[in-house]
Design a protein around this nucleic acid. Structure first.
Lengths: 236, 236
DNA sequence: GTCTATAGCTGGATAGAC
DNA sequence: GTCTATCCAGCTATAGAC
């Protein structure tokens, strides 16, 4: 409603990058849906809620996007794709010319895109919450996120392997999974830590989250392989 | 339908501990609801689904439990309370007589109740999924979990503090939060790691999860305090 | 204790007026 | 491009028959 320098969210138009003065109804719906989905998830939010928050009629959701599900898909894509791109870009930057980065550097390149470092404050929280909350809700989206991430995920595992060669690939995968869990959980459930810590820690402060998770995760990655790791790779 | 040695799930009856041959309709509904809520969440599951899976008529849900929400509350309570109890018991056991346990021991006491070590296999996954999925869905339940956990949480933080005295309380709180995130995420979204790892790691294998997370988290806890931790305790 | 029937609500989609 | 009116599906809950 106030700031209107918005990216278009259409995958089909690579030409038009930034379109100012685009606070059309369509745009308002899109932003409203982002905000609501990110806090409440998909099922909890009705088309009517979205329209109400955007100040438009709910019929317009179907008119512009084709339906609730289609709207979600568009939002989802617009958020996941840059995540992967940014991660790959950062990884390339630190491995340029065969250079071997430290664990910290690699983790930083993995974590920062999740926290959308560099983006304007207003959209950052929404962004991660979308990913966290949707992948927590709908199985299809977990699958989608995973398949989107495959490429960058493999590259990161490879990088980690070359700087922690004594660890098995499986262990590295587990540990990277733990990092994602810590990030997503913090962002999806800030209330939990806020309540338990008596408001002394706040996961909504993304800088603090980063400062805290990096040394913790880096040290965790450097831990020795656990005893039974190889013997029971996948028991089930 | 097969094994019927079930605990009663009524908080009001502390006397009757185990009641065999209780595979009544009420019990079937309860179990069915546990299974469905744990995999799909609350909103995604209808009373009709629950009844269908239990093989009874959907009207019975209201008859026995008073409604969908009340059923959920009962399930929820029956799962969270033991979690806290078990954690406290384990913590007491390792600190008995003023003994100072290691980080590993403390974390073990925190993690194992979450994974319900010692319980029969069939119910373990359901249990944690209930907590993870509900606290991801409804804000009230995050609040409820938090308030239930306050007591044991504080005790654990205190124990950690006494064995890692160089770390601030805030840092310990962050790190314990990361552990919970890793656990919950793994259990709620096993598909994610399974897909990304090409089925080489499986978070549904709770023993593997434990083996993997313990050395990782313990090493993470031992990491030095991050530089900016004190200065920007809670910026926001 | 169990099921039928139904009331009453919410929400997504759409045809058509403006 | 926007809104009205309406349809229809699916849900919870409940009164009352068996």
């Amino acid at each position: 409603m106030k700031k209107i320098a918005s990216k278009t969210h259409h995958r089909g138009s690579p030409s038009a990058e930034i379109r100012v003065l685009d606070a059309s109804s369509k745009d308002k719906i899109f932003r409203s849906a982002e905000a609501l989905f990110s806090t409440k998830g998909f099922r909890e939010v009705s088309v009517r809620d979205i329209a109400a928050r955007a100040g438009v009629h709910f019929a317009l959701v179907a008119y512009y996007f084709g339906g609730k599900q289609a709207l979600l898909d568009e939002i989802f894509h617009s958020h996941v794709a840059p995540l992967v791109e940014d991660g790959m870009k950062r990884l390339k930057a630190i491995t340029k010319g065969g250079r071997k980065p430290s664990v910290e550097e690699i983790l930083k390149a993995w974590i920062l895109p999740c926290l959308r470092q560099g983006e304007p404050e207003e959209g950052r929280m929404i962004h991660l919450r979308i990913i966290a909350s949707l992948s927590h809700e709908r199985w299809e989206y977990t699958k989608k996120v995973s398949s989107y991430m495959q490429r960058s995920y493999r590259a990161f595992i490879k990088a980690l392997q070359s700087c922690l060669p004594h660890l098995s690939k499986e262990t590295l995968m587990w540990r990277l999974h733990f990092v994602m869990g810590a990030l997503f959980f913090g962002i999806r459930q800030p209330a939990s830590l806020i309540a338990l810590s008596g408001a002394r820690c706040n996961p909504e402060d993304l800088e603090a989250t980063f400062d805290q998770i990096l040394p913790y995760a880096a040290a965790g990655f450097r831990a020795a392989e656990c005893a039974g790791a190889k013997s029971r790779k996948s028991k089930k």
